[in-house]
Design a protein around this nucleic acid. Structure first.
Lengths: 206, 206
DNA sequence: GATAAAAATCGACGCTGTGTAGAATTTGAG
DNA sequence: CTCAAATTCTACACAGCGTCGATTTTTATC
């Protein structure tokens, strides 16, 4: 019974299968860019990775699982460098830094992010991953808001709920802008930063 | 060659097919609620409408077209009552009214809205419909912001761009809240209203 | 209310993609 | 070198899709 499980855990030597697995995810990412999720078939991915459909099913149980693994690879790599919580800075600096970092991330991984968002409903595992990622951001935004003087608490007009709404604003705005161009992303970032600043009670200087 | 075309235009007597067509959309909506878009098959929809697959293809060319028609029916009904642009009111009133109306709409059509958003990428026709709907909101929000004293123009920190970001904030926040409960929607609405007010430069009174 | 054109429905076919099973091959530790 | 584990392949049965031509039902018209 082949291993459709995460937790390929620790191992000194790299199995051949680990390389193949990476090749599969790479092929998947390329195909997502090229023809999109719906049009992409398991056969396409297999071919892109240099194996047959049958062999691919040794690694992943379905197209959804492949994409889920791709999303996992991308956001996990993101969790480590979770310097989003650079708690030490002054609010204005923290906000600017967070937005700069967010632009970087979306420039680099926009395709995977958008795919993750689109599939969050239909592929529960992806939904989990993305929702967990969002929670990291929401926590960070909450901290910044509170430090800037916004009242703490879970009421609709206090820090926690506001942070959630701001997170969704950023997600959706970047989702759309990242489909257009880097310039659009930059502009979108400026707008989001402006609203974040205002929401924190900070006048964004001219 | 059967008619897969909109513009069944004017007609005094109602064709039998018009009733069937409505039945198909109703069945589709029910199935979306019941098993979701992916699991829903053309056969399911046909059965739900009391006809066979073959007959359904007389009306729609694919599952996507059925859902697109369902989305169209829902948002068109929305465009008519586009009182979103109740220009006459004072900003604070206008914002409150808009949010109240938005809650209503999402309570009633949340399922279809969420489906439309999810499929906007993969089904171009749905993307068009939703993006047009969003534009209506963005225009309305822009007007309110400008009336409240926010500088007009398309720069990242002026009315137009801010309105777009606020629209996406509302969309995404309601998208999530409407999956939970009416209470969540209500809270989400309060939060969005608060941020909208602040962004318009209006202190939301306690 | 008979009739012929148009509208609507059906059942069957071929196709593409899925997921599984068992046989065959490759890999790598000892 | 050897053999068990890992990896790959081919073949199969099955789901759902979209199309076609034949058949039945509606509807406008006389």
């Amino acid at each position: 019974m082949p291993a459709h499980d995460r937790a390929r855990s620790r191992r000194t030597t790299e199995r051949k299968g680990d390389i193949r697995e990476r090749a599969i995810l790479d092929a998947c990412e390329a195909l997502l860019a090229q023809k999109g999720y719906d049009a992409m078939t398991v056969g396409d991915v297999a071919q892109g990775a240099g194996i047959t459909r049958g062999a691919l099913y040794f690694y992943f149980g379905s197209k959804q699982e492949v994409v889920a693994a791709l999303v996992a690879r991308t956001v996990e790599h993101l969790w480590e460098r979770s310097r989003v919580t650079a708690q030490t800075e002054e609010p204005r600096q923290a906000i600017a830094a967070a937005m700069r970092r967010t632009v970087e991330l979306w420039n680099e991984h926009g395709l995977v992010f958008r795919t993750a968002i689109d599939l969050s409903l239909t592929v529960p595992e992806i939904g989990e991953l993305w929702s967990h990622t969002a929670d990291l951001f929401i926590t960070a935004i909450t901290a910044v808001l509170e430090r800037a003087g916004v009242q703490a608490g879970t009421a609709p007009d206090h820090a926690s709920a506001m942070a959630r709404a701001l997170c969704w604003m950023i997600e959706r705005t970047f989702y759309h802008a990242s489909q257009e161009s880097r310039e659009e992303l930059q502009k979108a970032s400026a707008t989001c930063e402006h609203i974040w600043l205002i929401s924190a009670g900070i006048n964004s200087e001219a």
